[in-house]
C-alpha cells in the first residue's frame, strides 16, 4: 500500500536511523492535528457560548469567523513578553512549558483504534496519570517566579485544587482498571466491547459509564476541576479573581492558554476511552471506527463548553469540600462495592 511504499522510500534515504525518523513522523502526525484542534476549540467555545447567550460570536475574520484563532495566535506572537523586575527569569519562562509539555507527552500512549497507537505500553494508564501530574508544576512555579504576592496566592490556590481533584480522579480510575483487569488503554477499551448488551447489538449499554455510573459522574466533574475550567475556574476569573498567570503576557500567556485547551482535549479523550468505549460503535449494525472516538471526544468537549455557559462559579471552600468530603469518600465506598460485586456471582466483567 501507500504507507508501505513510503516506509521503504524513507528506509532507503535514512538507513539505520529510519526507526527514529519514522517515530518522529508519527509524533508530528499526532501533535499537528492536536494543535490545530486546540486553536479551533477556542473558536468553537466562543461560538457555542455566543449562541447560548443569544449572540453571534466571532464572525469578522474570514468566512463565519473561521480565521479568528489564527489571527489571535498572530496577535499573541507579536506582543511583548513582559518579565517583571525581581522575578526569577529562568523559572518564569520554564513554567509555561511545564504546563504545556505534559498535555502533549501524554498523547504518546493514547490508542486511536486497535492498532493505531504510538507506543503500546502495558502500564499506559499509569503513565498518563504520572505525566499529567507534572502539569501542576507550571502553576506553582509561575506563581512563585512572578515575584508577586497575588500571582503566588493564585498559584497556591489552583495547585491545591488540582492536587485535591487528582486524588478523586485517581480513585475513579482505580475502579475502571479493576473491572477491565488491565492498565493498558487499548485493553480497557476492548474489555468494554463485551457483555450482555454488546452481544445483543446494544454496545453503548455495556460501556463502563453505565455499570460505573457514580464513578463516571465523579470523573466527569473532577476533570472539569482538574483543568481549572468553569464552574471551577479559580485560576482565571478575569474580572474577579487574580490567578497565577497575572504577570504573564504575549506568547508566555498564550502557552498557558494552549495548555488549558490541550489538557481539555486530553482528558476528554481519556473519558471517551475509559468510560465511553473509545472507538467502539454504539450499536451492532455500524462498524467500529476512528470516527466514533472523535465523536465521543467532541461530545465531552461540548459538555465542557456547555457547563461553562450554564453554571455560576463555585466558591473556593465549596470546591475543596466537594473534592475532599464528597468525592473521595464516595470513591472509596464505591471501590469496595465494585470489589464485592466482582467477587459475587453477579459479576458482569468475566
Amino acid at each position: 500500500m501507500m504507507i508501505d511504499s513510503l516506509q521503504q522510500l524513507l528506509q532507503g534515504i535514512f538507513g539505520s536511523v529510519f526507526p527514529l525518523v519514522w517515530t518522529l513522523l508519527k509524533i508530528v502526525l499526532i501533535i499537528a492535528p492536536l494543535l490545530l484542534g486546540v486553536a479551533y476549540l477556542t473558536f468553537w467555545e466562543r461560538k457555542v457560548i455566543g449562541w447560548m447567550q443569544v449572540r453571534i460570536g466571532p464572525n469578522r475574520v474570514g468566512p463565519w469567523g473561521l480565521i479568528q484563532p489564527i489571527a489571535d495566535g498572530v496577535k499573541l506572537l507579536m506582543k511583548e513578553v513582559v518579565i517583571p523586575t525581581g522575578s526569577d527569569k529562568g523559572v518564569f519562562l520554564i513554567a509555561p512549558m511545564f504546563a504545556f509539555a505534559p498535555a502533549l507527552a501524554a498523547w504518546a500512549v493514547i490508542p486511536f483504534n486497535d492498532t493505531l497507537v504510538l507506543a503500546n505500553v502495558n502500564a499506559s494508564l499509569l503513565y498518563i496519570m504520572a505525566i499529567t501530574s507534572i502539569g501542576v508544576y507550571g502553576i506553582i512555579l509561575s506563581g512563585w517566579a512572578s515575584n508577586s504576592k497575588y500571582a503566588f496566592l493564585g498559584g497556591m490556590r489552583s495547585a491545591a485544587q488540582m492536587i485535591s481533584y487528582e486524588v478523586a480522579m485517581g480513585l475513579a480510575l482505580v475502579v475502571v482498571l479493576m473491572v477491565s483487569n488491565s492498565l493498558n488503554l487499548g485493553d480497557i477499551v476492548k474489555s468494554q466491547g463485551q457483555g450482555m448488551f454488546a452481544d445483543k447489538g446494544l454496545g453503548f449499554l455495556s460501556w463502563n459509564w453505565l455499570p460505573l455510573l457514580p464513578m463516571f459522574a465523579v470523573y466527569l466533574i473532577s476533570i472539569v476541576a482538574e483543568t481549572n475550567r468553569a464552574p471551577f475556574d479559580m485560576a482565571e476569573g478575569e474580572s474577579e479573581i487574580v490567578g497565577f498567570h497575572v504577570e504573564y503576557s504575549g506568547m508566555a500567556f498564550a502557552v498557558f492558554f494552549l495548555a488549558e485547551y490541550a489538557n481539555m482535549i486530553l482528558v476528554s479523550a481519556l473519558t471517551a476511552l475509559l468510560f465511553l468505549g473509545g472507538w467502539l460503535s454504539p450499536v451492532g449494525f455500524l462498524p467500529d471506527s476512528l470516527f466514533w472516538l472523535f465523536a465521543k471526544i467532541s461530545a465531552v468537549l461540548f459538555f465542557f463548553l456547555w457547563i461553562r455557559a450554564t453554571f455560576p462559579r463555585y466558591r473556593y471552600d465549596q470546591i475543596m469540600r466537594l473534592g475532599w468530603k464528597v468525592f473521595i469518600p464516595l470513591c472509596l465506598i464505591w471501590l469496595v462495592v465494585v470489589g464485592c460485586w466482582m467477587m459475587s456471582p453477579l459479576n458482569i466483567w468475566k
Partner: peptide
C-alpha cells in the same frame, strides 16, 4: 510510580 508519587505529589 517514582514520577507519580515523588514528582507528582511529594515534591509539589
Amino acid at each position: 510510580s517514582l514520577v507519580l508519587v515523588y514528582v507528582g505529589a511529594v515534591m509539589v
